[in-house]
Computed example of a mutant assay.
Amino acid sequence: MEWDPWCGGRSLQNILASFRFMNPFVNSYFSNNYWSLPTNTPLILRNEISGINIGENSVVFWEGCDKPSFSSFYSSYFSNYDEVSWHKFIWHKGKSLRFTSYTWMALLGKLKMADLLISRGINVLPNCVFCSNGCENHSHMFFTCDYSYTVIISLLPCLDVFLLRPNLLQAFEFIEDSLSYNRWERNFCYLIICSSIYYLWKERSTRKFEKLWNSPSQLCRIIRRAVFAKVKSWKQFDELNGRFGIAG
């Protein structure tokens, strides 16, 4: 009643935020094709609502549709946002929300890397905790660093074809453009990359704060187990296992 934009594209809250209707449903306030508003309805709301002729149609339309769905609302809600090209790499059908969330932040450059903390006046060591050579930032960790690069090409050997080491977006785009994979194989590769981001970030934090270390091969085993737990229920598991050796 108060939050949907059914009054000329505006909600009642946009018009007058201080007033609340007792009943949350619009159809509670009309009878015999006429509005029947409470006597205490403010004049500004009364005029706005009464201007809608409910006798013309038996339903309230949502963007011209008399049978709106959740997807209609969802599309309308985000219509003012720009669509990014990489959304399909992380929000695919086989996604894991835990892995996707960290990859989303990594693609936006929002993980609390040393360079980001230093730029905000926080005094931290700038060196990469994995190789001690480069500066800890998103580009270095995904995947310029020797450690992270060893991990990702061990999991996806197809990425070992670049003249220079790929960054995160380039890794995704390489999989997307490859003619060797079908849709579910691409989703599986996206999942591998996303899980690698999560566990590389976790390894980084564990080294910094708990002084515990995993070698690249140990971390690869951890990632493979996590991916196996996710994809073993996929209908395409047998085909994926035959190509990528998931259960191995």
Rank of each mutant, 00 (worst) to 15 (best):
I54D: 09
F61G: 00
S28R: 02
I15V: 11
S31Q: 09
I44H: 03
S36I: 06
N47Q: 13
F21G: 12
E2D: 00
P5T: 03
P38K: 05
I54T: 08
L43I: 05
I52P: 08
I52Y: 04
T41N: 04
C65V: 14
G8N: 10
G8W: 10
I15F: 02
V59Q: 00
P38I: 04
M22N: 07
F25H: 10
L45K: 02
S36K: 15
S11A: 01
S28F: 05
N57I: 04
Q13G: 07
A17F: 11
R46P: 03
N14M: 14
P5F: 00
R46Y: 05
F19N: 05
N32W: 12
F21K: 07
F61R: 13
L43R: 09
W62Y: 10
Q13V: 07
N14R: 13
N32R: 14
E48K: 02
L16E: 09
G55V: 13
F61P: 01
L43D: 10
N32Y: 09
P24H: 03
P38S: 09
N27Y: 11
R20M: 07
N53A: 09
S18G: 08
N53R: 04
W35I: 09
N27R: 10
S50C: 13
V26S: 01
L45G: 05
L43V: 09
L43S: 10
N14L: 06
Y29S: 04
L37K: 03
G55N: 13
I15C: 11
L12M: 11
N47H: 08
V26T: 12
S11P: 00
N27L: 01
S18E: 14
I15D: 02
Q13N: 12
F61I: 00
D4G: 05
Y29P: 02
Q13Y: 00
N57M: 04
R46I: 00
P24D: 03
G9Y: 06
E48S: 05
E56W: 08
L16H: 09
V59R: 00
W62I: 01
G8T: 05
V26F: 05
N33S: 15
E63M: 08
E63K: 12
Q13P: 01
L45I: 04
S11T: 06
L12H: 02
F30N: 14
G9P: 10
I54Y: 14
S31R: 12
T41A: 08
N40P: 01
N14D: 15
S28N: 11
S58P: 02
G8F: 13
F21S: 07
L16Q: 14
M22D: 08
C7A: 09
Q13F: 02
V60Y: 01
N33F: 12
E63F: 03
S36M: 14
